[in-house]
Design a protein around this nucleic acid. Structure first.
Lengths: 113, 113
DNA sequence: TATATAGTACAAGATGTATTTTACTATAGA
DNA sequence: TCTATAGTAAAATACATCTTGTACTATATA
């Protein structure tokens, strides 16, 4: 029986996102309650899109991967890939639609440096 | 040597509260990110004062004690004792002063039943 | 004084989280 | 094709959290 040779094509990087009904205010508040993640969200609120690279002054890249996952699964951010880089942005429309005033309430309350 | 008889007087129930500089937005968001606690806070926002007894439909009294402790140590609530009962209220002034718009932002975003 | 009641304290168990370490994948460019 | 780079995956550690069970304290009232 001959062995089939398969040309290994790289799997595209994709992400899983929560269904709308699985996004809760509890999950969002929990996601925002960590200093590292709230810092990320504050920056995202001012910059449209950012790369993980931009946050390396905050923590390690492995830890960033973890925190991006928490934010993504809570419904707070989305991401896309472009070449080697990843671009992340806030799901402002969704959050404002589901929980009006929440994001602005939190962002305004954060002490500006 | 004669044994001294001491009349045991009950110790008054008191609570410890965080210093103002130890109250953080992270702690408050974490405190609000639990369904049981957010339900408690929503009720407190509408009722000036409430007793633990009023929340027994939500969870057990031991668990209430735990959640009140989390809320208190985060700077979200205060409590006083009157007879056998305890009265709890929201630290609205403090929170609004330290994190303007935060509490209203969260409370407005919560789905009303 | 005895009893019931509102609430507390503590420990156990199960689960979740933040971080680091190590090793890996996918892409770009020489 | 080789190498460097941006980011991922998984495991391990350490620690925090939510809940329940059991036993307790403080107060009110009969």
């Amino acid at each position: 029986m001959s062995q089939e040779i398969i040309e290994a094509t790289p799997t595209p990087r994709t992400h899983w996102y929560p269904d709308r009904e699985d996004i809760t205010i509890y999950g969002i508040l929990a996601a925002l309650s960590d200093p590292t993640r709230l810092a990320i969200v504050c920056q995202l609120a001012e910059h449209e899109e950012k790369c993980p690279f931009d946050f390396l002054d905050i923590t390690s890249k492995q830890n960033l991967t973890h925190h991006f996952k928490v934010l993504r699964e809570a419904g707070v951010i989305m991401a896309r890939y472009e070449g080697r880089q990843k671009f992340i942005w806030l799901r402002r429309d969704l959050i404002d639609d589901m929980f009006p005033g929440l994001l602005d309430g939190v962002l305004n309350a954060v002490e500006k440096p």
